[in-house]
């Protein structure tokens, strides 16, 4: 039995069609990559809620699976990124949509998306404590995993050096 099919990757038609819907609806949306089962796009913090609502209500991306952040210290930006699954559209369960925004690193303020995806509540809270991103409108941004008396810069920022390093 052939374990892996190393055939040439098929055209990502499904994700390409999704990407086209976003670019047609929201000008200024940057498509970072279109892969077979993955689509990543970047938008601005003041438009992300519209994009999120569109992807949930029109395209069926209703199941949040991960919220992440990356410190791009050389560009002075923090990237906040939401990974969402689609459980309501048949045939789209294998697609993961990634919606990113890049607020300024000095004062990263973005709107919370927990009214779009309530499952993002603790993940945004974790991104807040680990990267210092302020999610405007989030009901509780207390430390979740870090000690309540953590008195240093957020640890996943690149200029935080772990003790002993």
């Amino acid at each position: 039995m052939q374990a892996q099919a190393p055939a040439a990757p098929a055209e990502p038609t499904k994700t390409k069609a999704l990407a086209d819907k976003f670019t047609a609806k929201f000008s200024g949306t940057v498509i970072d990559y279109v892969r077979q089962k993955r689509l990543k796009l970047t938008t601005s913090p003041d438009r992300i809620k519209e994009v999120a609502l569109f992807s949930r209500d029109q395209l069926g991306f209703d199941h949040i699976s991960c919220v992440s952040g990356t410190d791009w210290i050389a560009k002075n930006e923090i990237e906040v990124i939401y990974f969402v699954d689609n459980l309501s559209t048949p045939g789209f369960a294998d697609v993961v949509l990634a919606i990113a925004e890049r607020p300024n690193r000095d004062n990263p303020m973005v709107p919370t998306l927990i009214d779009v995806w309530p499952g993002a509540e603790y993940e945004e809270r974790e991104t807040h404590e680990m990267l210092g991103v302020d999610f405007q409108g989030h009901p509780n941004q207390k430390n979740l995993l870090l000690p309540e008396d953590w008195n240093d810069i957020p640890p996943l920022r690149k200029d935080y050096i772990s003790p002993g390093r």
């Binding site: 699976s65 992440s68 603790y122 993940e123």
Partner: peptide, 15 residues
């Protein structure tokens, strides 16, 4: 790795 994000089932189900 420049950045490795690990998200786990337990964390998600905690909510």
């Amino acid at each position: 790795p420049y950045r490795l994000r690990l998200q786990t089932g337990s964390f998600r189900n905690m909510l």
